[in-house]
Simulated scan of single mutants.
Amino acid sequence: MFNGFNDNDFDVFKIEGLDERMKQLIALIRPKLEDLGKEYSAELTSLTGEEMHFHVAKHARRTVNPPKDTWVAFAPNKRGYKMLPHFQIGLFETHVFIWYAVIYEAPMKEALSSKMLKSLPVIKKKIPSDFVWSPDHMKPDAVPHSQLKKSGLEELVQRLGNVKKAELLCGVHVPREKAVKMDKSEWQSLLSDTFAKLMPLYEINKQL
C-alpha cells in the first residue's frame, strides 16, 4: 500500500549510469508505483466509466542515458497507454506530477485538438488556476493555468493538432520539499481531488 515518497526516491535521479540508476529505481520507486496503480485504477474506472488498467514505466528502450523521471500510467487498454489519452502519477528529481496526458504517439491528436478548441471556454473555467500545463512530458517545466487562460492555452491546444511531435499535459506538480512531508491520507486526498478535477478534459476525449 502506498504511504508516500521520501528523499531516497528523489535521489535516485542523481545516480550516474543507466544500470546503477535503474537498479535503485526498480528497488525503491517501482514498488510504490505498482501500489499506486493497484489503488487508483479502480478509482479512475469509477470516474471515467471505462475499465482503466495501470502500466508502470519500464524504460526498456534505454541503452545509454538513464531516465530523468518515472511514472505509472492509467488507460482503458491492457496492452498499452501511449496511443491513448491517459493519466499519470510520477516523479522527477524536483517534484511529483499528476497528469492527464496526450503524448506524441496518440493518433487522434488532431481530432482531440479540434474538440478541445471548441471546448476552451469550459476548460478555462473548470481547470483550477493552480493546475499546470506542459507541451512535453520529457521536460520538468510547466506553466500555471492562470497564466495561460487568455491566449496561451489556445496556442497549446492548436499545436497539439498541428505539430507531429506535440503533446499536451495538464495536472498538478508537488515540489519535492512538500512531497516528502505528505502522509498517506494527504496523498489520497490530493490524488482523488486532482483526478476528479481533470475529468472535464477526459470527457472531451470520450466524445470523439
Rank of each mutant, 00 (worst) to 15 (best):
E43Q: 15
Y81N: 14
T70W: 08
E110M: 15
D136M: 05
K126A: 14
M108W: 15
F10I: 03
D9Y: 10
W187A: 04
K164Q: 14
T194R: 11
L191M: 02
K82S: 04
H55G: 01
K150W: 15
I89G: 06
Y40E: 01
K32R: 10
R79W: 15
T194C: 12
S113Q: 06
L44Y: 14
P140C: 00
K82I: 04
R61S: 07
D9R: 10
D19N: 14
L36W: 04
A196R: 13
P175S: 00
P76D: 06
M22F: 15
F10N: 08
A196I: 14
V132N: 02
S129N: 08
F5R: 05
K125I: 09
H145A: 04
G171M: 00
S113Y: 10
V143R: 11
D69G: 03
G4H: 09
K165N: 12
L91H: 03
V174S: 02
P135T: 03
P121K: 00
D183A: 02
H53D: 13
Q207W: 07
M116I: 01
H55C: 04
K164P: 00
I26K: 13
H53E: 08
K165A: 07
R79E: 13
I15R: 00
L168V: 03
L168P: 08
D141R: 15
A57C: 02
T48S: 07
K68E: 13
K23T: 12
S151K: 15
D183V: 01
G90N: 01
K139C: 04
N65R: 09
Y202Q: 10
Q88L: 04
A42W: 13
V143A: 05
L25C: 05
E16L: 07
A196N: 11
E105Y: 02
Y81I: 08
I26L: 13
N8C: 09
E110Y: 12
M83C: 07
V12L: 09
D183T: 01
M1L: 11
V157P: 14
P135W: 06
N162Y: 14
P135Q: 01
D183H: 06
K164V: 06
N3V: 12
T63R: 14
E105C: 00
E20P: 01
L153G: 09
P66H: 10
D130I: 03
V12R: 06
K139D: 14
F131E: 00
M138T: 07
L18P: 00
S41H: 14
R176A: 02
L201T: 04
A75I: 09
K197M: 12
V64K: 13
E167H: 05
D141K: 12
W99C: 01
L208T: 06
P140M: 02
F10W: 11
V143W: 08
Q158V: 02
A166D: 04
L160C: 03
D7T: 15
L44M: 12
R62E: 07
V72C: 03
R62K: 10
L47I: 09
I123G: 06
T94V: 07
F13D: 07
V64P: 06
K68Q: 11
H55I: 14
F74R: 08
T45Y: 12
G49Y: 05
P175V: 00
